[in-house]
Amino acid sequence: MIRLLLGTMLIALVLLLMYRPVFPTKHLGPAAAAAIRKGTTNKAQVRALLGEPQSAERQVPLRQVPGTEPLPAKYTASEIWTYWTVSKHKSSDATPGTGPAHFFIIVFFDARGMVLDCDTKQDE
């Protein structure tokens, strides 16, 4: 019984040490997103500006078919980084209990690591 309890505690301790929430090290906001330029900003520059992404996804990009409308960056990107912040209230005059506001920066990269597009979203 004691071995089971110690084993469970050890597993819980290892899981707690492995779990480390990732938060951006830099200030997120519209000004930070405006500094990211399509075709000229690369991954290292985005990392220097915003810190480590809270979410990073790799995908196989779709190829653009010649003679058709350009596909959105979310389909042609090789990698997508997402950053977000959460504030306590949606605005300074928000009533308590309305929930937090979220600000997102989504950065789409091509296979060379250059920014294809940068999108921002904010909950209202």
Rank of each mutant, 00 (worst) to 15 (best):
P24K: 00
F104A: 01
K38R: 13
A44L: 10
E79W: 03
M18W: 14
Q122E: 15
R3Q: 10
C118F: 00
I105V: 11
I80Y: 00
T76M: 04
H89T: 09
H89M: 07
W84T: 00
Y75M: 08
A32F: 07
R63W: 04
Q64R: 04
I36G: 03
N42H: 10
M9H: 03
L62N: 06
V22T: 14
R20P: 02
R47M: 11
L71Q: 07
T76A: 05
G113W: 02
I105L: 05
P72H: 08
T76C: 05
E124Q: 11
P70S: 11
G7L: 10
I80W: 02
C118D: 05
V115Y: 02
L6H: 05
M9I: 12
I106G: 01
A101H: 04
G29S: 08
E79T: 07
L62V: 11
A35F: 05
D93W: 08
P72S: 09
L28G: 03
R37S: 11
S55Y: 08
L16K: 00
R47V: 08
A12N: 03
P66L: 09
S91I: 00
P66W: 07
I2H: 10
R112T: 11
M1A: 14
D117A: 09
W84P: 00
T82N: 09
V107A: 02
P61R: 02
I2V: 12
L5V: 15
